[in-house]
Simulated scan of single mutants.
Amino acid sequence: MFAVYAKEPNPDDPLASLTVGERPDPDLPEGWVKVAVKAASLNMHDIWTLRGVGIKPDQFPMILGCDGAGVLEDGSEVVLHSVINAPDWHGDDTLDPKRTLLTEKYQGSFAEHIVVPARNVLPKPAGLSFAEAATMGTAWLTAYRMLFVKSGLRPGQTFLVQGASGGVATALVQLGRAAGYRVWVTGRTEEKRALAERLGAHQSFESGARLPERVDAVFETVGKATWGHSVKSLKPGGIIVVSGATSGPDAMAELQRVFFLQLRVAGSTMGTREELASLLSYVDLARIRPQIGAELPLEDAERGFRDMQAGETAGKIVFTR
């Protein structure tokens, strides 16, 4: 079958390992289902996989793609949940010590077909296209958990999103505006800030700019480049919810400010199957449509990878079949 895959780990030049070509058709274990992939969205996790982060060398070649949407063999339209748990696990999917994501142990969604455990597919809302639904399982689920599960915010409060144009950031803007929060964002360029305002941000600011007032929460996916600004932007008792560090970790964690102002830092990773079900219901009821920055045929995947690596994004990059 046709697929986009990492042929080997390459920490220094990840795109040199990106391969477009044929891979064997997947076997179908008992209790798993086969999905004909119609759309799959690109995530930073795919760049990390190319680098060999979170995956053992003997797992290569590895088909990339953490999430997607497609059709079961009986014709049902579904969305993928990419957190795969141990068969005997009960509880929060994200806390299972034996959990794995697609592309870490099991082959991913950038292919004609993918096989996943039966519990890892959910019905696709009729109001979402396959391309829109393909953004839900990673970026939007991450944003949903950050905002509604981890932050403890109430509608009417103010939060700041660092880095206005990425997939998680644009999802936070759209989810937060629809739920009644005051949404502020930062962005490196005027175009990125304008995009955030079109999606619902009440105000946008240059990266590192002094804010009109401190905020109740900051949502972080950037890391080193924005961490100091995030800590300084919080009200006493405020919270930073962090789900990534695309610019690298920060060795200067502003710990004095953290303890003196009693700030809280909460980590957040992906989300549960139940949270994905709630997210799909929410976007359908609220008629929210995710921001797709580029929709490309899977054959042109390298172009999407290069844009993501360069930070040239305006929402999610989606590959379609």
Rank of each mutant, 00 (worst) to 15 (best):
G187E: 01
A36M: 05
E132W: 01
T19H: 05
F259M: 12
A253N: 08
A314K: 12
A301F: 09
V318K: 03
E191A: 15
T94V: 13
A178I: 08
K316Q: 08
F259D: 00
G108E: 09
T100R: 12
W89I: 02
L285W: 02
S278I: 08
G166Q: 00
G187A: 06
A126R: 14
M146A: 09
S243I: 06
R193M: 13
C66T: 14
L28R: 08
H113G: 01
R214S: 13
S204Y: 03
R119E: 13
V116G: 12
T94K: 09
E77V: 10
E299M: 10
K98S: 13
D216Q: 07
F319E: 02
R182K: 13
D307Q: 15
V4T: 06
R188E: 07
L160F: 02
V78N: 02
I114C: 07
L160S: 06
F219Q: 00
G68K: 08
F130R: 03
I240M: 12
V265N: 10
T94I: 03
G228A: 12
G248Q: 03
N85V: 10
V218R: 01
G31P: 02
S243D: 08
M44N: 13
L175Q: 04
L42C: 07
A179L: 07
F148M: 13
A294W: 00
L50A: 07
G304W: 01
S109Y: 03
I63Y: 08
S233L: 09
L255W: 14
L298D: 05
T246I: 14
G180P: 11
T246R: 02
E190H: 10
R119W: 00
G68N: 10
R23Q: 12
T272D: 01
P87I: 04
V168I: 14
G54W: 03
L255I: 15
T313G: 05
L18W: 00
T100H: 13
T19P: 04
R193S: 10
P24S: 02
G54V: 06
L122S: 11
S76W: 00
S82C: 14
C66Y: 11
S247Q: 10
Q256S: 15
H229V: 01
L141P: 13
E275K: 10
M252T: 14
V121F: 05
R51L: 09
T100A: 12
A196M: 08
Q107A: 12
V33H: 04
S204L: 01
G248W: 07
E312Y: 05
G187R: 04
L175D: 06
A3T: 03
V318H: 04
G271S: 11
L42H: 08
V265G: 07
H113P: 00
A139T: 11
S243T: 10
L255F: 15
A143W: 10
V33F: 03
E22M: 12
P97V: 07
E104M: 14
D307G: 00
G248I: 04
Q174F: 05
D284H: 13
T221V: 15
S109V: 14
L141D: 11
S268Y: 10
A179S: 14
A134D: 03
G223F: 02
A131H: 07
I288Y: 01
Y282R: 11
A194V: 13
P297W: 00
S129G: 14
P297M: 05
Q162M: 03
R51Q: 13
G108S: 12
S109Q: 10
V241E: 02
I317Y: 01
D92N: 11
A69C: 13
G176E: 07
A171M: 12
N43A: 11
R193I: 12
V116H: 04
